[in-house]
């Protein structure tokens, strides 16, 4: 009887599509420095123990920003919720000055992508709504021309938000 159940379970498992090791796994990271919480991190604590200046966010492992990477977090109204330390340096802003401001104060679609400005907004809104599809866009700093930055847009949480990782 037990052997039959085990066989059934094994056959059911083989029906699940093969996944990459990280795919679908949630990963925690600091919204300021991008570091991963160390083992023993108190699950109920939300503040990064490394830098003390960011909250612990979660996203799927393949969408997670690199440690000390440049990334932003936006809500569904395209308002800036968090700016990483590296993004602060890259965009020459301070998180405390730009939080709650519209994305367009920081990033706009790059010139070649101008027609897709709406799609950038749509991608962010969908990611902020919890859509798990990862999208890409080409953007530039709002006050700078001639710079193109590849951006990866994905969903993060715990409160659904859009994570924009600037790939340098």
């Amino acid at each position: 009887m037990d052997g039959g159940r085990r066989r059934d379970r094994q056959s059911a498992l083989t029906l699940v599509a093969e996944q990459r090791p990280d795919e679908g796994r949630a990963l925690a990271f600091c919204g300021h420095c991008g570091r991963r919480p160390q083992r023993g991190f108190r699950a109920h604590a939300r503040v990064c123990e490394s830098c003390g200046l960011g909250l612990i966010l979660r996203c799927s492992a393949q969408d997670a920003p690199p440690v000390d990477g440049a990334f932003l977090v936006l809500d569904a109204r395209l308002r800036v919720c968090a700016v990483s330390r590296r993004a602060e340096q890259l965009l020459a802003v301070s998180e405390t000055d730009v939080v709650d401001r519209h994305l367009s104060a920081l990033l706009v679609p790059a010139e070649a992508q101008a027609a897709s400005g709406e799609s950038l907004a749509v991608a962010i809104v969908q990611a902020a709504g919890g859509d798990r599809v990862t999208r890409t866009a080409v953007v530039r700093p709002a006050n700078t021309f001639g710079v193109r930055i590849n951006a990866r847009i994905a969903s993060c949480g715990p409160r659904p938000a859009a994570l924009i990782v600037l790939e340098l």
Partner: peptide
Amino acid sequence: LQEGLSISSA
């Protein structure tokens, strides 16, 4: 902080 996405926004 409970619902925030960053300390600045909180």
